[in-house]
């Protein structure tokens, strides 16, 4: 499947990625599994996605939990807890 991923705030700054297009062999993948795949890239990715930082996810603009499934064409986003208002 092909997906698009966005990163925001602290994640964007530290990973030096604002967005990317990613092709994966899986037909579907949970959000936590995708974090695992990305965490393999380097120590920084491991620390940012699976470390102490709370990382929240969205699929197609909806806030979701770690078990939500990602399928082909989805827009995924990772970011720290929101602090607006």
């Amino acid at each position: 499947m092909k997906i698009k991923i966005f990163y925001f705030a602290r994640l964007k700054e530290t990973l030096k990625f604002s967005s990317e297009d990613l092709e994966l062999p899986e037909a579907e993948l949970s959000l936590i599994k995708l974090k695992g795949v990305l965490a393999k890239r380097s120590e920084v990715w491991q620390k940012m996605l699976l470390g102490n930082l709370k990382v929240r996810g969205a699929i197609n603009h909806e806030l979701v939990d770690d078990h939500a499934l990602i399928v082909d064409g989805d827009e995924v986003a990772f970011f720290p807890p929101v602090t607006g208002g």
Binding site: F8, P80, P81, V82, G84
Partner: peptide, 23 residues
């Protein structure tokens, strides 16, 4: 609802430097 569910992030510049705010 907005405080915890809308995707905004604040970064503060203070006399001690720049940092992202925690929820």
């Amino acid at each position: 609802y907005l405080k915890t569910q809308a995707p905004f992030w604040k970064k503060e510049l203070t006399e001690n430097g720049e940092h992202w705010l925690d929820d």
